[in-house]
Simulated assay, not measured.
Amino acid sequence: MSRGLSKIPILLWLLVTISCSPGEGTEGPGINEIEDLKTKQYAIQGQQLYLQYCSNCHQEDGSGLARLIPPLKKADYMLDDIDRTIRLIKMGISGEIIVNGTSYDQPMPGYPQLTNLEIAQISTYIYNVWGNKKGLVPAERVNTVLENASNIPLQ
């Protein structure tokens, strides 16, 4: 066997190892800057849930989908009211909303199957990435908000 061929398995192993290793910042934008351990844990779990339930429409980077789906990144509608966001995740919404001065009228499905903890994790994620630093959204807050949700309009 020539010397060149004997190096191929090593090079392949190195290539696979490098390409499969988590790179810096794999937790997502903003998560690495979270100092509080519980908030960081919620955000990491929330990122996975966000990717599963929300990113198809709102995009992985929170930018939305043109004039069809509103952005979450730097969205005044979201930043103005954490409790409303909690209710939206659970119950969805239909009808017009205004986000950063732009009208959106596409219904958003709710996710009633999500637990209050999962909603807290998603909320913690979206409120601590893309330049936001709102801190932990605890499951207890989600419990309280959703217990009183039937009396509060989403708009």
Rank of each mutant, 00 (worst) to 15 (best):
L49M: 09
L49Q: 07
L49S: 08
Y50A: 10
L51P: 00
Q52S: 06
Y53C: 03
Y53W: 10
C54I: 13
S55K: 06
S55W: 00
N56V: 07
N56P: 03
N56E: 09
N56G: 15
C57Q: 02
C57Y: 00
Q59R: 13
Q59E: 12
Q59G: 01
Q59S: 13
D61Y: 06
D61M: 07
G62I: 11
S63W: 06
G64I: 12
G64F: 12
G64P: 04
L65N: 09
A66E: 11
A66K: 09
R67P: 08
R67K: 14
I69T: 14
I69Y: 13
P70E: 05
P71D: 00
L72Y: 11
L72D: 02
K73W: 09
K74I: 12
K74L: 14
K74D: 15
A75S: 15
D76R: 05
D76F: 00
D76E: 04
Y77D: 05
M78C: 07
L79M: 14
D80K: 06
D80S: 12
D80L: 06
D80N: 14
D81W: 05
I82Q: 10
D83R: 11
D83N: 15
R84T: 01
T85D: 12
T85C: 10
T85N: 08
T85M: 14
T85I: 07
T85S: 15
I86K: 05
I86V: 15
I86Q: 03
R87P: 01
R87L: 06
R87I: 03
I89M: 03
I89Y: 03
K90V: 02
G92A: 08
G92N: 11
I93R: 12
S94A: 14
G95W: 11
G95Y: 05
E96D: 12
I97G: 08
I98Q: 04
I98E: 11
V99T: 14
G101M: 13
G101K: 11
G101N: 08
G101Y: 07
T102D: 14
S103T: 14
S103E: 15
S103H: 09
S103P: 10
Y104S: 02
Y104W: 00
D105F: 04
Q106R: 11
Q106T: 15
Q106A: 10
Q106V: 15
P107W: 04
P107M: 07
P107S: 13
M108V: 09
P109I: 14
P109Y: 03
P109T: 05
P112Y: 02
P112I: 04
Q113C: 01
L114M: 04
L114F: 06
L114H: 03
T115F: 00
T115D: 03
T115I: 01
T115H: 00
T115N: 00
T115W: 00
T115Y: 01
N116Y: 02
L117Q: 15
E118L: 03
E118S: 08
I119T: 05
A120P: 02
T124L: 08
T124A: 10
T124M: 10
T124W: 02
I126V: 15
I126S: 06
Y127M: 12
V129H: 04
V129K: 05
W130C: 00
G131R: 06
G131I: 08
G131P: 00
G131L: 13
N132K: 04
K133N: 15
K133D: 15
K134I: 03
K134N: 14
G135S: 13
L136T: 02
P138Q: 09
P138D: 11
A139S: 14
A139M: 12
A139L: 07
A139F: 05
E140Q: 13
E140M: 08
R141Y: 05
